[in-house]
Design a protein around this nucleic acid. Structure first.
Lengths: 319, 319
DNA sequence: GTACAGTCTGAAACGCGTTTCAGAGCAAGT
DNA sequence: ACTTGCTCTGAAACGCGTTTCAGACTGTAC
């Protein structure tokens, strides 16, 4: 495989000149430029990206950290990231953590070893204190709330978002409301519970279901829900997928919705709309796009930012 | 940031010795090894992965090409890939093509420019002839059928798989059968139609629905299906997600399943099972894992392989 | 006592594109 | 006539870890 020096020799110019042609530097005469072009064509020159990377110190890669690559919740974020990355000619190295702290550390170690230019965390169990130690090795952006000043954050304020959702339910006349959350101890779940107990007069511990992540969990919940004696009249889910599983199972059992139980989802994924799910729309694709842009800008010297977004009600037929 | 030469100077040894310590080469005396370790600790040495990459010619990365990062169909493949990659300390660069040929080319250009060691295509519109031109730059593996000898393939034989599915329906007593496919012109869709017309006596052009990719499409289909005068008694889907959309919408409209229409999916995604979908199970996670391993082995000199897998019937309640 | 094998060490070359710096040549400005 | 400022060119250094090769040394074998 021909390298830049072979080209230089073949075209009888210096390697500097070849490099200048590659980078479209203006200070090359037409003749030499042409000779170099010719040489590259004849020898089938292909620029070695690794050498470029070592030389410039830029990898053109970000690592994207998320618990599960195939969880639909992250789909729209990733989509936004991918679109932004394509525009900037950047690559995304995906890193699945399965909520394991050591996997998050491994992902951020890529930053340390200059294998990527920056890191984007869609979810994390690592403390911000620990995360900040990695900050010196490159920009870090998160999709979660509570990041310190050095770490960029683009997220929805889950407290405010839940307040908004609960207000939608209240305005629709629902008083007995339950909520369905994912991991019990995650910061967003804590914020959501806070909102629930702050806003809902008839809030009950027993009406807070935690540990529901997937559609399958939603189906399981349907069973548990129907078994219960005293049931809320409306359920506010923190995920459309769980809500959909619940909805599908109830419909299968011919439970009337929203007459017997109203459902409000959270996310606004197209699939939810397709099933008529009423939901709180969260601009996840935008968040993904912005996360990329922020990280990119920060790499070029911009300062980190915090951007808190709000959600809007997306009516369906389940409320 | 200290590099290997700084360490050498600090520990008063040669860079070769430092490199040997890094690579755990045995021919280093205990004293020098200790001195080097000490120096690395004191100067906070971090190995530069880019330099290593340039030097060894190995990137420890594969590019994974697929139409949509967030399409659930690819989720299990990607999961298998990710698990295998983690084991080998490899990274996955995800490349979303949206079925654009030029995006596939860009992805394979990474191979040309030595930005990745190999390429794994879960889907492709590129011809195998063109793909073979990239083969010289690194191993390529596909999850589709019909690959030439130089390109590894791990796939399900969609013709055989569809024959198997149609037999399941026949054995359950269904005679009037329709099929629902994704892209009309894709090789797998062609094979499936072939199987349909070969196997089903009452096969009708009008009972072949093409262009259905997502759950939303399945919902749309429900409407179209119910409008139709002469309907088949059973539908065989090429995707669980489309089947689920269809199923959910019919249940919402209180159409009895399987009494009025039987549904057989294809995939075996956990979410399908959750909704009681009868389906043909395809070992996609295994395929992902094997695709990685094959590519990896091939990089180390193994020859390419073709591995055709079969599907099995996974009973549910929709048949 | 002589070979041979194994252990340990480091200089130099290698992978390859970019950047800095010095210098030559030439035209415009005063 | 002299300065200033482009335009063009290339040698050398740089980023940094690995590998090859040659050589020194020690120990065992015959």
């Amino acid at each position: 495989m021909a390298n830049i020096r072979d080209i230089a020799k073949y075209a009888d110019v210096s390697v500097t000149t070849v490099s200048r042609v590659l980078n479209e530097h203006p200070y090359v005469s037409k003749e030499k430029r042409e000779r170099v072009r010719q040489a590259m064509a004849e020898l089938g020159y292909l620029r070695n990206q690794q050498a470029l990377t070592l030389s410039t110190g830029r990898t053109q890669r970000f690592v994207v950290v998320l618990p599960y690559l195939d969880h639909p919740y992250y789909g729209l974020f990733v989509n936004g990231l991918a679109k932004a990355a394509l525009q900037r000619d950047y690559r995304l190295v995906m890193w699945q953590t399965e909520y394991q702290l050591d996997q998050e550390r491994q992902a951020l170690d890529l930053l340390k070893h200059r294998e990527v230019d920056g890191a984007i965390l869609l979810s994390h169990t690592m403390s911000f204190d620990e995360m900040e130690m990695y900050r010196q090795f490159g920009p870090i952006a998160v999709a979660t709330v509570g990041a310190p000043e050095t770490i960029s954050s683009v997220h929805v304020d889950h407290y405010a978002a839940f307040v908004a959702g609960l207000n939608v339910l209240a305005q629709a006349g629902y008083i007995e409301i339950g909520i369905v959350l994912s991991r019990q101890d995650s910061p967003s779940s804590i914020a959501r519970q806070q909102a629930y107990f702050d806003e809902v007069e008839l809030a009950r511990e027993r009406w807070v279901w935690t540990g529901y992540l997937t559609s399958e969990d939603g189906i399981r919940l349907a069973d548990e829900f129907l078994r219960q004696q005293e049931r809320p009249r409306a359920l506010f889910f923190s995920s459309d997928y769980v809500a959909l599983g619940f909805l599908g199972e109830l419909r299968r059992r011919c439970v009337r919705i929203p007459d017997e139980v109203a459902i409000l989802g959270f996310d606004g994924h197209p699939i939810g709309q397709a099933f008529g799910l009423s939901t709180m729309y969260s601009p996840n694709e935008d968040i993904g796009r912005t996360l990329f842009d922020v990280t990119f800008e920060e790499m070029n010297g911009a300062t980190s930012i915090t951007n808190s977004l709000t959600v809007t009600y997306l009516p369906g037929t389940t409320l």
